[in-house]
Nucleic acid binder design. Sequence first.
DNA 1: TTCTTGTCACCTAGGTGTTAATAT
DNA 2: ATATTAACACCTAGGTGACAAGAA
Lengths: 220, 220
Amino acid sequence: TSDLEMRQLWREFDELGTEMIVTKAGRRMFPTFQVRLFGLDPMSDYMLVMDFIPCDDKRYRYSFHTSSWVVASKADPHMPGRIHVHPDSPAKGAQWMKQVVSFDKLKLTNNLMDENGHIILNSMHKFQPRFHVIYVNPKAEDVSQCQTYKTFVFIETKFTAVTAYQNHRITQLKIASNPFAKGFRDAEADDCVIESITNVNHPAICSRQRNHTRPSSMQL
Amino acid sequence: TSDLEMRQLWREFDELGTEMIVTKAGRRMFPTFQVRLFGLDPMSDYMLVMDFIPCDDKRYRYSFHTSSWVVASKADPHMPGRIHVHPDSPAKGAQWMKQVVSFDKLKLTNNLMDENGHIILNSMHKFQPRFHVIYVNPKAEDVSQCQTYKTFVFIETKFTAVTAYQNHRITQLKIASNPFAKGFRDAEADDCVIESITNVNHPAICSRQRNHTRPSSMQL
DNA sequence: TTCTTGTCACCTAGGTGTTAATAT
DNA sequence: ATATTAACACCTAGGTGACAAGAA
């Protein structure tokens, strides 16, 4: 069996309608897909694999008016259905079970010509991540026939692929929970209390100055 | 067979008398021990392992007077002889051969109580890294008996373990060749030429200002 | 309009030798 | 004297959303 890690965080996102950024170069998922494994044979080899299946046959757009996703059309032609093999594969059951397995090397792209082995997804479509535990039979010469699969689907990990966040609440939850987005957080909670005590004449309580000015044109 | 990568750099260090820092927390080697492998069975599993053997039974000190290492005494009692298994082990021969194998996760420590699995070495002693290719026989139940080893020793990788660099030329070669030490480089070569053209009134040609002032006491 | 792209400031994470202080 | 330690400035390497400009 297998348990999803950070399930509570996944559910917070899922309630708002999870969005995952796709870029040409490839973007990691956040939250990261992580699982805890149980009941494997400690001495046998397993491959751990992820893939992504369309949730439906629809293309979506985000209605800012109603703050919700609405159907825009039928699905675009679907891309080659790539898989992501966990880079530690193959490994013994004992190895997989002794710690949380993290798919933090997995990246999502919208580039149909991607040559980096990333997962190709259509933007503005909904996807369901799937997790496969594949038993590798060492005695079999023909690998294609002599394997046993077990597939896990955690419905709270479904998401809409986007090139830019649509729902502002998703953006805020990403900023609040992803360490790499700390630069976009307002000073908050504990920090705020301390600041309001120590820094008497702060210009704007609990909000940080950021430099977002950009040159209107770029040279070289 | 097996080839040492960056052999020229290793030899430059070896001619000066390579020193490797050991710290309580563990320090990587530089140059990193990297090899290219040939002639493995593509379909068989191998473990790649490193260990370190004392070059002799002596403790050294660096004579600044003569700029050379001199014998200080007999060797200190030797530590538990740990090994480092390459984290990708075990893997197929094809996997090992298709790219350079880098032991960049290997760290050296002088902490006899180390619990991080690092290689424990006595400071001021000389060591010879060794590299072992271990064939893993899948049919054997008793792992201890049914393995075949092949050991490689590249004499240009021998070094003296130190807690602080002794030979200033070693320090300079580390700074010049290790990307992570770029902060200690003087502006040089190409950069220098450009700077001397573009920056007319530079205070000190080809040398960078650095902030090395430190508080004489530390609070919290 | 709607969606995508490229660049950026701002982070996390961690590898360097330097230095002052400490230990032996 | 000699050797070790811990904190530090300064890097490499790379993951964030914001933003302006471009594309469809």
